[in-house]
Lab assay of single mutants.
Amino acid sequence: KEQQNAFYEILHLPNLTEEQRNGFIQSLKDDPSVSKEILAEAKKLNDAQA
Protein backbone atom coordinates (compact mmCIF):
# COMPACT_ATOMS: atom_id res chain seq x y z
CA LYS A 1 0.00 0.00 0.00
CA GLU A 2 2.77 2.43 0.87
CA GLN A 3 4.41 1.66 -2.45
CA GLN A 4 1.13 2.33 -4.30
CA ASN A 5 0.72 5.67 -2.54
CA ALA A 6 4.27 6.72 -3.36
CA PHE A 7 3.79 5.56 -6.96
CA TYR A 8 0.61 7.62 -7.29
CA GLU A 9 2.11 10.72 -5.70
CA ILE A 10 5.23 10.60 -7.86
CA LEU A 11 3.07 10.28 -10.98
CA HIS A 12 1.31 13.51 -10.00
CA LEU A 13 4.27 15.71 -9.08
CA PRO A 14 4.02 18.49 -11.68
CA ASN A 15 7.63 19.67 -11.88
CA LEU A 16 9.50 16.43 -12.57
CA THR A 17 10.75 15.64 -16.04
CA GLU A 18 9.62 12.40 -17.62
CA GLU A 19 13.12 11.04 -17.11
CA GLN A 20 13.18 11.91 -13.41
CA ARG A 21 9.72 10.49 -12.88
CA ASN A 22 10.68 7.24 -14.60
CA GLY A 23 13.82 7.00 -12.49
CA PHE A 24 11.91 7.33 -9.23
CA ILE A 25 9.30 4.83 -10.36
CA GLN A 26 11.99 2.35 -11.37
CA SER A 27 13.58 2.77 -7.92
CA LEU A 28 10.21 2.04 -6.31
CA LYS A 29 9.88 -1.15 -8.32
CA ASP A 30 13.46 -2.20 -7.54
CA ASP A 31 13.11 -1.72 -3.79
CA PRO A 32 9.58 -1.07 -2.45
CA SER A 33 10.88 -1.09 1.13
CA VAL A 34 12.37 2.39 0.67
CA SER A 35 9.29 3.93 -0.94
CA LYS A 36 9.05 6.60 1.80
CA GLU A 37 12.61 7.74 1.14
CA ILE A 38 12.11 7.71 -2.63
CA LEU A 39 8.93 9.75 -2.32
CA ALA A 40 10.73 12.27 -0.08
CA GLU A 41 13.50 12.63 -2.68
CA ALA A 42 10.97 13.06 -5.48
CA LYS A 43 9.09 15.75 -3.54
CA LYS A 44 12.33 17.57 -2.74
CA LEU A 45 13.31 17.60 -6.42
CA ASN A 46 9.81 18.63 -7.44
CA ASP A 47 9.94 21.59 -5.04
CA ALA A 48 13.42 22.59 -6.19
CA GLN A 49 12.21 22.71 -9.79
CA ALA A 50 9.01 24.62 -9.07
Rank of each mutant, 00 (worst) to 15 (best):
A50V: 10
Q3H: 08
V34W: 14
N22M: 10
E2S: 06
N5Q: 10
L16R: 00
E18F: 11
A50P: 08
N46Q: 02
P32C: 04
L45A: 05
Q49T: 03
I10H: 01
D47K: 08
K29T: 15
Y8A: 13
A6D: 13
A50E: 13
I25S: 04
A50R: 13
Q20I: 02
P14V: 08
E2F: 01
Y8Q: 11
V34Q: 13
Q3S: 13
S27W: 14
N22V: 10
E18W: 09
P14L: 10
Q49N: 09
A50Q: 15
Q26H: 13
L13Y: 09
Q20K: 01
K36L: 15
K1I: 06
Y8P: 04
K44A: 07
A48R: 05
L13S: 02
Q4C: 08
H12G: 15
E9D: 06
E19Q: 14
G23H: 07
L39E: 04
K36C: 08
A50L: 10
Q20D: 03
K29W: 13
K29V: 08
D31R: 04
S27G: 10
I38Q: 02
L11D: 09
E41P: 00
A48K: 14
N5T: 12
I38P: 00
N22I: 09
N15Y: 14
D30Y: 08
A6N: 07
L28H: 01
T17C: 03
A40L: 06
E19P: 09
F7Y: 08
Y8S: 08
K44M: 10
Q26S: 12
A40W: 11
Q26W: 02
E2A: 08
Q20F: 01
S27L: 14
D30P: 04
E18Y: 06
T17P: 01
N5I: 06
Q49I: 05
S27C: 03
N46T: 01
E19G: 05
E19R: 08
N22P: 00
S27R: 06
A40Y: 14
L28D: 00
D30W: 05
I10A: 01
L13Q: 03
I10M: 03
K36R: 15
Q20W: 02
L39F: 04
H12A: 13
E41D: 13
K1Q: 14
K43S: 07
L45T: 10
Q4Y: 06
I10V: 11
F24V: 01
S33G: 10
L16I: 10
K36V: 11
Q3N: 15
E2D: 11
L28A: 03
A6C: 06
K44L: 15
E37S: 09
N46I: 02
N46G: 03
P32V: 06
